[in-house]
């Protein structure tokens, strides 16, 4: 009888340690994966901001007013003019968000693609996984201009700075949430002053 009890208790101890080890391993793997995904999102954000920096700091360079395309200036898109490659020819640069259906294959229901379109070229992806992209426009007094006032040439000519807020999230959920990072910045290019 004692022999049987010893064997059963040994098996129970073994099962306990096995389950605890598996749980520990699972928790560690999930946590490390989430950390890796968070770092990936941060690296993506840095690359995205570099692209935005290059374009938005040149906003209005080599052009005359209006520096924005009326009708394409709102909270989720902006089209502006600049001689971006300094060749004497004014270019148009259009940033806009794609539709959520384009990334319907991902778990994340809110992720979209941020596009950049130069002149009449095909639009290129800046970054997928954008869950928030918010543009606002500031006048010379530092006040945010209502979007309704940006539908005329006079309105867009008042813009002195563009504020950008962007949030990236992973395509797949990890530990009941999406890995993500956000950034906000402002561009007050000299050519808008």
């Amino acid at each position: 009888m004692q022999f049987l009890i010893d064997h059963v208790s040994s098996l129970l101890y073994f099962a306990f340690f096995l389950m605890a080890t598996i749980a520990l391993q699972h928790g560690m793997t999930a946590s490390l994966n989430k950390c890796r995904m968070e770092i990936d999102e941060q690296l993506d954000m840095v690359q995205t901001v570099k692209i935005l920096d290059q374009d938005f700091h040149k906003l209005g360079y080599g052009t005359s007013a209006p520096n924005f395309m009326v009708g394409n200036v709102d909270s989720m898109e902006v089209k502006f003019f600049s001689d971006i490659d300094n060749n004497g020819i004014v270019d148009s640069i259009h940033y806009y968000l794609g539709d959520v259906t384009e990334l319907s294959s991902t778990d994340n229901p809110n992720d979209r693609i941020l596009y950049r379109k130069l002149n009449s070229d095909a639009a290129t992806q800046v970054i997928p996984g954008v869950t928030d992209f918010q543009l606002s426009y500031v006048d010379t007094s530092g006040s945010v201009i209502p979007y309704a006032n940006l539908t005329t040439v006079t309105g867009v000519n008042n813009v002195r700075a563009v504020r950008v807020r962007i949030k990236l999230e992973s395509a797949f959920m990890m530990e009941d949430s999406y890995a993500g990072t956000s950034w906000q910045g402002s561009y007050a290019p000299v050519n808008l002053r």
Partner: peptide
């Protein structure tokens, strides 16, 4: 991870303040 995110955010906001002061 949080520290690096904090630095990214801090740089963004510092640049934002500088850009708006430049107006």
């Amino acid at each position: 991870v949080f520290q690096s995110e904090a630095i990214i955010n801090a740089v963004g906001v510092a640049e934002q303040i500088l850009e708006e002061i430049s107006l």
